[in-house]
């Protein structure tokens, strides 16, 4: 039984559909990467799992099941019980995601206090222990400092500590390394891999960085134009992508094991804005093999483990 199952999720504003047809699942202890360009609906999907869609945005269909609870129907009490307890989240901007006026120790302890799982004093002691686990030197004195006294990488460690202190079963990481230096990125990824493996925490990793995916993910879910276009095990996706978008996304990665062949590859054009979504396949305007069939919307097809939404998959001659 899956930990998290999203089925046909649709998110919209009053007059615009932003996400439709997101279907994915996360098993216990598994790392699933949600990949796509900016504007493809990755973060909206994550925020709807947390029940934290912004003003004017709402879920317009589909289900988000965590265990047996449908989060789209859950009351705010139920959501508040799950958030920070069973489901934790890490944001992209480590420094601005911490309260500038609260010591980092108190912020790490926050979720234990909020959910009444420890007294403030006990929670603070656990927070110091957690700061030690995420590799912050001298955690006792660091815990008393404010976020502004710490570097970006340190703040990201603090946020990871705050997310994992409650031992959540699912961690949603929204571009956790985008704002960090490349050297720090690798450390943070190792840290997340290490800590979640120890506690059997599943991760829904949102990123547009295929390097991060290769580093961390077990399975990959590729989004384009508000829906899932391909999903499968990370090795299959990297070695034999079926959807032309996935293939192009992989081609944009510069490779170290081949001599450079001129300019880096870039996918031509831009992600169409939700206002300008074409009928049928949303990738047709940038695809290298569109046909008349693409005027109808392709559905996810393929094997149980590796599915894609395309009429003309890569490697298929027709």
């Amino acid at each position: 039984m899956s930990l998290l199952t999203i089925q046909d999720l649709a998110i919209r504003t009053n007059d615009l559909s932003l996400v439709d047809g997101v279907t994915l699942d996360v098993q216990k202890g598994e790392v699933v990467a949600l990949v796509g360009e900016s504007g493809s609906g990755k973060s909206l999907t994550a925020m709807s799992v947390m029940g934290l869609l912004g003003d004017g945005l709402f879920v317009d269909g589909g289900t988000i099941k965590f265990d047996d609870t449908d989060l789209t129907q859950a009351s705010s009490t139920t959501l508040n019980r799950l958030r920070g307890n069973e489901i934790a989240m890490i944001f992209q901007e480590p420094v601005s995601s911490l309260n500038p006026l609260l010591s980092v120790g108190a912020q790490v302890a926050e979720s234990l206090v909020v959910h009444g799982r420890a007294s403030p004093a006990q929670a603070y002691t656990k927070a110091i222990e957690m700061l030690r686990q995420v590799g912050i030197p001298e955690p006792e004195s660091r815990a008393r400092q404010l976020p502004s006294e710490l570097s970006g990488g340190m703040c990201q460690r603090v946020m990871i500590a705050a997310a994992l202190i409650s031992n959540p079963r699912l961690l949603i990481a929204d571009e956790p390394t985008t704002a960090l230096d490349v050297t720090i990125q690798a450390q943070i990824l190792d840290l997340m891999k290490d800590l979640t493996a120890r506690s059997d925490t599943a991760i829904l990793l949102i990123t547009h960085d295929m390097g991060v995916v290769a580093e961390l993910a077990d399975r990959v879910c590729v989004m384009y134009g508000g829906s899932v276009v391909e999903q499968g095990p990370v090795d299959d996706i990297f070695e034999a992508p079926h959807h032309p978008y996935t293939q192009m996304l992989l081609k944009t990665l510069p490779r170290l094991d081949e001599p450079p062949k001129g300019a880096l590859f870039a996918i031509p054009g831009n992600v169409p804005s939700p206002k300008d979504w074409p009928n049928g396949c949303r990738f047709q305007s940038r695809c290298d093999r569109p046909s008349d069939r693409c005027q109808t919307r392709p559905l996810l097809q393929g094997s149980e483990t590796h599915r894609f939404a395309c009429f003309h998959p890569v490697g298929d001659a027709s």
Binding site: M50, L52, L82, F91, E93, S97, N99, V114
Partner: peptide, 25 residues
Amino acid sequence: RPFVQLARAMGSSPWRVLAIHILPN
């Protein structure tokens, strides 16, 4: 601001968010 979102993502009630995260700021 993201830290308010994070506080909500930790399951803080609206009153707690207002009192601890917004008022001091």
